[in-house]
Design a protein around this nucleic acid. Structure first.
Lengths: 206, 206
DNA sequence: GTCTATATAGGGATAGAC
DNA sequence: GTCTATCCCTATATAGAC
């Protein structure tokens, strides 16, 4: 209907060093910034357009709706997730398997921290998005996690450990805000990884 | 200006078993429910009133603004926090001290889970609240945490461990959603506590 | 203490010029 | 590809009756 490009090619891994990124990506970058800071609902399209130096209506040339902005950003993350989930095969039952998976997760989170902050601070809006555009139960990390956590055939101890391990990653890299901004990413990742492994490898003592 | 009661006595520990709670508390209970589920911004006063069986304007008799609803709920949590922070004295530097503090934190989180979910899912709105009504830098847990995490005189290892430990609690009790709803609170608390202690007590291996 | 009615503002979205 | 102007809707909040 609208001349807006279809959102299919959204989220494709682009240059990332947005030097002279096209307008579409610039809009997404600003949206990412504001959505993360103020929240999705509190951020108006006028505000986004203002920061880019043009008018609100211009955004509608690139995106069919405000929701599509959030969706595009979500898909960026989604692509990264799928990309690295593919490398980890199928096995995701034992805590040890989760430990190695979370290693990759830490890497991704350090690389795309802004996107993860967006996700963490806009869960309500993103859940609504999933209900509206139910993209055929995709196989993402969050889904696998829920499957494992609710699988009563596994030891509760292990399931709780996995949930805590993921929380530890989020706590160390996201919830801590900029407290560790002075710490190099590599070192921070290493420290968090140690914690995660400590949680997920049985400490021999009951 | 308005006949609304001043928000001073907000958050006082009430019966909690809201059997025949007064209207004010019933409003807050519904607001807590909807704010947690849909988010603060997406929830309208009309929606809250509807669920209570009366009109939107009635809410304004009890609260001066929508913001005041969020504030009142935040203060509920705040009171619980202060209550148990008082018992832990001043010492909050070593990971071991944080371990015992987080024990109490787990208790509180299990008891008032709904309030913690509200907080976790509405950080943006709550930060705005703190800016607007800056309640004289209060001494809450979040503040103490930030102080410790940014204190460069402490070992980075320990600081990261503390951040991860808090994250682990949140991951095990909050982010897991209802995955552990079948697990009794006491057991779940015990399991998470073990994880936290595992993180915060040096495992002897470097 | 709760109602109806209304004021006011701002948001998302569209039409059509350039 | 971006603009101005506008439509429509919903939201918070207020006024005043009951």
């Amino acid at each position: 209907m609208t001349p807006s490009k279809s959102t299919d090619r959204v989220g494709t891994t682009q240059t990332e060093t947005g030097e002279h990124a096209d307008t579409r990506e610039r809009i997404l970058d600003v949206a990412l910034d504001l959505f993360s800071d103020q929240g999705y609902e509190k951020t108006s399209l006028r505000e986004i357009a203002e920061r880019l130096g043009f008018s609100k209506a211009a955004i509608y040339y690139h995106f069919a709706s405000k929701e599509d902005l959030l969706l595009a950003l979500h898909l960026r993350l989604h692509d990264y997730g799928r990309e690295f989930l593919a490398t980890t095969g199928e096995g995701l039952s034992s805590p040890q398997q989760w430990a190695t998976l979370l290693d990759g997760f830490i890497e991704q989170m350090l690389r795309h921290r802004a996107l993860f902050v967006l996700q963490e601070r806009n869960r309500a809006a993103l859940e609504r998005l999933h209900d509206t555009r139910h993209e055929a139960d995709h196989d993402d990390l969050e889904n696998r996690l829920k499957l494992v956590l609710t699988d009563a055939t596994f030891d509760v101890r292990d399931r709780v450990r996995i949930a805590c391990a993921l929380g530890a990653v989020i706590g160390g890299l996201l919830l801590s805000g900029d407290a560790f901004s002075a710490v190099p990413d590599a070192e921070l990742g290493h420290l968090v990884r140690d914690v995660v492994h400590g949680i997920l490898t049985p400490p021999a003592v009951s």
